[in-house]
Simulated scan of single mutants.
Amino acid sequence: MIQIKGLSKIYKTKKQQVQAVDDVSLTINQGEIFGVIGYSGAGKSTFIRLINRLEEPSNGTISIHNKDITKMSATELRLKRQKIGMIFQHFNLLWSRTVFDNIAFPLEIAGVPKATRAEKVNELIQLVGLAGKENSYPSQLSGGQKQRVGIARALANDPEVLLCDEATSALDPETTDDILDLLVSINKKLQLTIILITHEMHVIQKICHRVAVMENGKVVESGDVLDVFVRPQSKTTKRFVQQLNPLEHDQASLKEFITSREDSEVVKLHFIGNNAKRALITDVIKQFDVEINILQGSIAPTREGAYGTLYIELNGSKDVLASSIQFMREQSVEVEVLQHVE
């Protein structure tokens, strides 16, 4: 478990000071993939560099497995960093070394014997899907292959935590998905805690268990990915959710579809988990004398299950409309009645 309390980072110059991270407190559970998302300048990259003290915190504490790394001496910290792997946006490989030698580098620094080192490197090459590329140089690899080398190198010393700083930002969408699938596989096989920094909601959606949203150095929202997606609270989170579902929070686009009848209601439905696959609209039409006009909708998968949003217009008598809405609520579907679509 990682416990972060009151973490802050202030950069000072002669003329001003900049609060890059502002009083952040988080608990990250053992074995989970925890995402931190924010726009450029939110403080997320500074935050992840504070976790392994590549940046020194101005205030606060960081405990990994009940050991406060903010109080460690230089010698203690050097040993602890061997158990904190890190992968970077631009790979940071040694261009004069082969794939094998790049992965072996941290083991050399740690003083691991040559035979043991070779066995470990070969194991990692298989794990990340680079068999046959052992003797290739970084210049001979694709972007995805380079990042696989970076991941293998970060795993060389059997870390307790893997930090990923925009690890997929330099990759095309298909390669990004391949790398994310690899991180999920590593997380499952090794039960490794992964902290992932990104500005892409797709990355959070695909692999994270929980997420924190950063803005101006602060965490403005955090929780289970599914809960944050379905019930975004902050303006920043709503903007990120809209990346995945452009129709969400754009109620103005509904106006052209609405009939403006007096005997109608516009309703927004949220389907979560298995309910996203239900034929709810068919059930309502079968049971009630109501006409349903589907306005717009979408469904998206997350690591913890699917969620969907559907906007519908219900036409019928006042009593029937009330009964239909109550029925939908009884089916474990979140129902929001939009009296006026602005």
Rank of each mutant, 00 (worst) to 15 (best):
F240D: 01
T236G: 03
L226E: 03
T236A: 14
I207T: 03
M214F: 14
Q243L: 09
C208V: 00
D224I: 09
G217W: 12
V211H: 02
A212S: 13
S222Q: 15
V225K: 00
T236N: 06
Q243G: 05
P246L: 02
N216W: 06
D227G: 04
E215M: 04
I207E: 04
K218A: 15
T236W: 07
N245V: 15
V220N: 04
G217E: 10
I207R: 04
A212C: 13
N216I: 04
D224C: 08
S222G: 06
N216P: 06
V219W: 03
V228P: 08
K218S: 14
F229T: 05
V211C: 03
V228H: 12
G223R: 04
H209N: 15
R239W: 05
D227T: 13
R239V: 09
H209P: 00
P246T: 01
L244V: 07
K218V: 06
V211G: 01
D224L: 15
Q243W: 06
E215Y: 14
E221S: 05
R210H: 15
V228E: 12
F240K: 02
V241S: 08
H209F: 02
K206L: 08
F240A: 02
D227I: 07
R231G: 01
E221N: 03
M214R: 04
Q233S: 13
D224T: 11
N216L: 11
K238V: 08
G217P: 10
K206A: 11
K206P: 00
P232L: 02
F240G: 01
T236E: 14
A212K: 10
Q233G: 10
S234M: 10
V241Y: 07
V241M: 13
T237W: 10
L244K: 06
V213M: 03
C208H: 02
S234N: 08
T237F: 09
E221C: 04
K238T: 09
V228Q: 11
N245G: 07
R231Q: 13
N245H: 07
M214K: 01
A212D: 11
K218Y: 07
D224F: 12
S234F: 07
V225Q: 00
E221Q: 12
L244W: 09
G217N: 11
V241W: 08
K235P: 05
Q233L: 11
T236H: 02
R210F: 12
M214N: 01
N245C: 11
K218D: 09
K218Q: 15
V225I: 04
V230E: 06
I207L: 13
M214T: 01
G217A: 09
P246C: 03
Q243E: 14
Q233V: 14
K238L: 09
F229M: 15
P232H: 04
V213C: 04
V211R: 00
V228T: 14
T236C: 04
R239L: 13
K238W: 08
G223W: 09
K235M: 08
T236R: 02
R239C: 06
D227E: 15
R210A: 11
E221P: 02
G223L: 08
V211D: 02
M214V: 00
